[in-house]
């Protein structure tokens, strides 16, 4: 099947005070339509930087990113940040409309689409509130709705649940799976939590080393709904840990 996005030989480097630091090197990644890919790796390996490059907030130093022109979508990508980053002066509905204001849609169409997106994450009834009136979990749901509302070819998520408490996090993980299987949304999900990655994704790509490289890419062939203690999932998680473990000896900022 044709992939939605093809990343080839991607390298990312920063120059600071004449010193050049390579963050990522030679990254190849293809994502199929409707696929849920998770990227794991210790903090500082360049996961966020990769997403920033994909969404256009930073430029790569090498390689190409090609989007399949046949894929029908209003925007190439939309990003959900770790902290919800809702605009505090906008009501929830207006926050969800935000990305739609870049489109040709009329005010009414935007409103309807935003309401549908909010309903999709079960938050229609808070449409008129301000972000500070919501819980952390609700805010993150709204951030998800804001991203989904623009109907992106690929939904990018940068550790979206890592700031939440365990119960809320697990609830949102299940919610994401539900939304994703219902819509067939292609997702690129970044996390430092290996268990989260194997629980959610169809494929887990582990980054490690400095500069960061793909250490292992593992298909998770367990149908949803999954059990968190599923033996196959535990086995995959252990496999990823083993591969990344070699890094722990030389890296002190290991967080898993």
């Amino acid at each position: 099947m044709q992939s939605v996005i093809a990343i080839e030989g991607l390298g990312i480097a920063f120059e600071q005070g004449g010193v050049r630091t390579e963050v990522l090197r030679g990254l190849d990644l293809k994502i199929a339509p409707g696929e849920f890919v998770a990227i794991v790796g210790p903090s500082g390996v360049g996961k966020s930087t990769l997403l920033r490059v994909l969404i256009g907030l930073a430029t790569p130093s090498a390689g190409t990113v090609r989007l399949n022109p046949d894929v029908k979508a209003d925007r190439a990508m939309a990003l959900v940040f770790q902290d919800s980053r809702l605009l505090p002066w906008r009501r929830i509905l207006s926050n969800v409309c935000f990305g739609l204001e870049k489109t040709q849609l009329t005010r009414l169409e935007r409103r309807e689409r935003a309401l549908a997106a909010l309903a999709g994450v079960g938050l229609r009834d808070v449409a008129a509130r301000f972000p500070h009136q919501l819980s952390g979990g609700q805010r993150q749901r709204v951030a998800l709705a804001r991203a989904l509302a623009v109907r992106p070819a690929i939904l990018l998520m940068d550790e979206p649940f890592s700031a939440l408490d365990v119960q809320t996090r697990e609830a949102l993980q299940d919610e994401l799976i539900r939304v994703q299987s219902a819509s067939g949304q292609t997702v690129l999900f970044v996390t430092h939590d290996i268990d989260e990655a194997v629980y959610l994704a169809d494929r887990v790509v582990a980054l490690g080393g400095r500069p960061g490289e793909v250490k292992i890419s593992l298909d998770i062939n367990v149908p949803h709904p999954r059990r968190r203690d599923d033996v196959a999932l535990r086995h995959s998680a252990a496999q990823i840990r083993d591969v990344l473990f070699a890094e722990t000896i030389v890296r002190e900022d290991w967080v898993i």
Binding site: I55, G56, L57, R75, A78, L79, F81, D83, R85, L87, F98, G99, K102, V150
Partner: peptide, 13 residues
């Protein structure tokens, strides 16, 4: 800066 990034990420550059 984080909020400015949100604008950029949604195409308001």
């Amino acid at each position: 800066r984080d909020l400015i990034e949100v604008a950029e990420a949604f195409g308001f550059k």
